[in-house]
Design a protein around this nucleic acid. Structure first.
Ligand code: MN
Ligand code: MN
Ligand code: ZN
Ligand code: ZN
Lengths: 145, 145
DNA sequence: GGGTGACGTAGACTTTGTCTAAAAACTCGA
DNA sequence: TCGAGTTTTTAGACAAAGTCTACGTCACCC
């Protein structure tokens, strides 16, 4: 029942601490990217991040954006969400939760974990361990025909 | 508890009937693609289909493979499975079911619907209707350090 | 024969993401 | 402070999946 408070923009010190605490060197570029990602609860593509981070004169290269998003995901700072065949979304919310995906609009919305229970997790194939469970509820706009 | 029998290669007449029954004109190219897709329970990418359909001299173009997979999916003959950011898989099994995805090997395996129950489907956002529920259990090989 | 519509095709093109090779920026001990 | 080694960033080439366009082909009908 615990509810995470809505995300808020972080101070520079908070960003540095967050990166530090996940074993990520807080370079300037990584701080800028983290600022964008953690500004609020949202689901951004790599290209969204690239644009936002470069919108007012700060310059971070495409390679660095991709490298950094991969690093953040590997270190557990953010989560990759794969719902759209054309691009990956990055999610600052790493708590267990699921997603609505509106196939008409491309909109991606969170579903709190306590809103959707999974029963009977099946036994995994031999020699494998679980890495995560994604539930995506695809929705359409009504009367879109 | 009803269990679908394992899929088997279809006769040409069965393929034609299958396409007809879904309102798809059974052209030669569509028949060849359907033969490949429905030969057995499997998850093929567009490129897999393109290669298989062209392996012994029969020529179907890339454009036609993509067009046909899109058409089959739209008509409900097959299902798109989006688990890998680099390619879409196409699934001849349109019964409700879910997937294991081995992130080490890229292997995709079915989970029968009765093996995994979802409780408390959350209320959908206003003005939208459900289009499908995907559950993906990501797994890794043990001790892959 | 000629028109119409559905379908298939080559190949250019777009988009997302990766890779390479080099520059820049840190780290740390002498 | 110097300098060697390491980590990070970068431009731009590259790769892969998928889309689009413009044209060809075929069936059907008159
Ligand atoms: Mn794509
Ligand atoms: Mn891609
Ligand atoms: Zn989310
Ligand atoms: Zn399947």
């Amino acid at each position: 029942m615990q509810k995470r408070p809505p995300r808020q923009p972080l101070s520079q010190q908070q960003v540095i601490d967050l990166l530090d605490s996940h074993g990520v060197q807080p370079t300037m570029q990584r701080q800028e990217i983290a600022q964008v990602l953690f500004a609020r609860d949202q689901h951004l593509s790599a290209d969204d991040v690239l644009k936002q981070v470069n919108q007012d004169s700060a310059r971070v290269s495409k390679a660095t954006v991709y490298n950094t998003l991969g690093l953040f995901a590997a270190k557990g700072l953010i989560r990759e969400v794969i719902v759209d065949p054309s691009r990956v979304f990055y999610d600052p919310n790493t708590c267990e939760h699921h997603h609505f995906y509106n196939v008409d609009t491309g909109e991606l919305m969170d579903i709190d974990a306590d809103q959707l229970a999974l029963m009977n997790l099946p036994t995994l194939p031999a020699g494998t361990v679980a890495d995560g469970v994604d539930v995506i509820i695809r929705i359409r706009n009504q009367a879109s025909a």
